[in-house]
Design a protein around this nucleic acid. Structure first.
Length: 489
DNA sequence: GAAATGCGCGCG
DNA sequence: AAAGCGCGCGCATTTC
């Protein structure tokens, strides 16, 4: 848990405001290792008294004035400030969680829990079956090296025990083994132990870490809030008399790419619910599956396979969008810094990275030195390529969230007698954000406000698009439903 | 015996 | 069928 916090704090120091000023130079001059270890102490944490908070606020205001793009940074700061509040509010309110349903799902999938402890029935059956096929009644299934050796003994000469590799082998052990691994994962990560530790008073209360990811996305620390398996979503259940408004943006990142590159052809493809269908209609690629893999490849930097082969076609049809990501990759490869739409900058190169490049540039550099330098440059290029898109998508989502928070707060509370006490007094009488995951939100709301909330969610999305991209015509359609549970129907 | 590392897999 | 971005977590093993 502590480790997650430290990462979060470290990344938060990388935000765009500081990068846009000369603070970076001052920060870089400080002894870095000491600063890193200081993060474990109170002294290096965020301001915890009025005076230091005001001082930090003053520094931010001054830095903002000194920056050459006030409007965007101001928006980013406002969104981040709101996000910090929302993260704490969401933890306080909690995500309504039906422990009975969770237990029922676990029993259905894993089998009953033996009274005296031990492995659930269905898991145990699968484990027995796997050991039979391995012809080793004591085989260890949870130790990767031992399992790999067991597989080798029966002629499965895989290099790893990953599912994607195992599926290529035709052997009776494969199917039950993959099933076992699936169940073991659910049991270990979100089984009864997780339920007991993380769900209290019908609420799941994870620790959110706003801007915990370098790109500006949120991270979480404890509870695995950002990795709740879809299988368990039926356990997310509104209180009696309340509903969930669940909304996500379809294909947020390519839409953001269309807007920030002002690529009107891609924006045209993004008209309507399914961007990939729009790409097929444009004639760039023949099938929806290819459109998807091509777009992902463009944003992630694919070089081989189907995805890599489709990129030239994408470059012809969407030259502006592709130029934006290709430029970001080139800057990264050359050691430069890229920036999101609102001005969050990517991290600078590490000393190790620069050493590798310098070594390869020496006259006596070996072929291996050069190959390593090329590989690390390409790695960094893929990172910066993705950074601009992932980071700007995170900004869109933050603005959406922040705008929605204001709208929800303005709604009339309902009769307190109908409230949901588990969320505490503040959140028991009005709609409140209950969950956020990159491009998806869940609002917990009194039934009487559900339609109003749905409208607010849509209006907030429209606001976010306008605040970031002005009048540029790109759609951000929501998949929105009002329901008792967060499960997809 | 605690901390770091590798693996595998859940999420976007 | 796979590879190309960003994470957190649990477990087993290795290292200090």
């Amino acid at each position: 848990m502590g480790a997650g916090h430290r990462y979060g704090l470290r990344h938060r120091d990388d935000h765009g405001l500081r990068a846009a000023t000369d603070w970076d130079a001052a920060a870089a001059a400080e002894p870095a290792p000491a600063a890193l270890f200081d993060l474990d102490t109170e002294a290096a944490g965020p301001p915890d008294d009025i005076a230091s908070a005001l001082a930090e606020f003053g520094r931010q205001r001054a830095a903002l004035e000194a920056s050459d793009d006030h409007a965007r940074l101001r928006l980013l700061l406002a969104a981040e400030s709101a996000a910090a509040l929302i993260a704490v509010e969401m933890r306080t309110a909690g995500l309504p969680w039906d422990a009975i349903e969770h237990d029922r799902l676990l029993t259905e999938i894993l089998g009953a829990r033996p009274a005296g402890g031990g492995m659930p029935v269905r898991m145990q059956q699968l484990a027995d079956q796997v050991r039979t096929e391995l012809r080793d009644p004591t085989a260890s299934l949870d130790s990767q090296p031992k399992l790999l050796r067991s597989l080798h003994r029966i002629g499965i000469l895989a290099d790893s025990t990953s599912r994607w590799e195992l599926v290529h082998y035709d052997h009776a052990v494969i199917e039950p083994l993959i099933q076992y691994k699936r169940l073991a994962r659910l049991h270990a990560a979100n089984g009864w132990g997780w339920l007991a530790e993380w769900v209290h008073d019908a609420r799941f209360r994870p620790v959110y870490v706003p801007a915990g990811v370098v790109t500006g996305r949120w991270a979480s620390s404890g509870g695995g809030a950002l990795q709740i398996p879809r299988q368990l979503r039926p356990a997310v259940r509104a209180d009696p008399g309340w509903a969930l408004v669940v909304a996500d943006v379809a294909q947020l990142e390519p839409r953001v790419l269309a807007a920030m590159s002002r690529d009107s052809a891609l924006a045209r493809a993004a008209r309507g619910q399914d961007l990939y269908a729009g790409i097929v209609e444009s004639g760039a690629v023949p099938t929806r599956a290819q459109a998807k893999v091509a777009i992902l490849g463009a944003m992630y930097g694919a070089t081989t396979g189907d995805s890599g082969r489709l990129l030239p076609a994408l470059r012809r049809t969407y030259p502006r969008a592709m130029a934006l990501v290709d430029d970001a990759a080139r800057v990264g490869e050359q050691g430069g810094v890229v920036s999101t739409w609102l001005g969050r900058t990517s991290p600078t190169t590490s000393a190790g990275w620069r050493d590798t490049q310098a070594a390869a540039a020496e006259p006596d550099a070996s072929g291996a030195d050069e190959a390593q330098a090329r590989r690390r440059a390409a790695d960094r290029g893929r990172f910066t390529r993705n950074f601009v898109v992932q980071g700007t998508a995170a900004e869109w989502a933050l603005v959406w969230l922040a705008d929605l928070r204001t709208r929800l707060a303005a709604m009339d509370p309902v009769n307190e007698d109908r409230g949901a006490p588990a969320s505490g007094p503040v959140f028991s009488t009005r709609p409140h954000l209950a969950f956020f995951l990159h491009d998806e939100i869940i609002v917990h709301t009194p039934l009487a406000r559900a339609d109003e909330v749905a409208e607010a969610v849509r209006d907030a999305a429209a606001s976010a698009a306008r605040l970031l991209f002005g009048r540029f015509p790109v759609d951000f359609p929501l998949d929105l439903r009002i329901s008792q549970t967060a499960a997809k129907d």
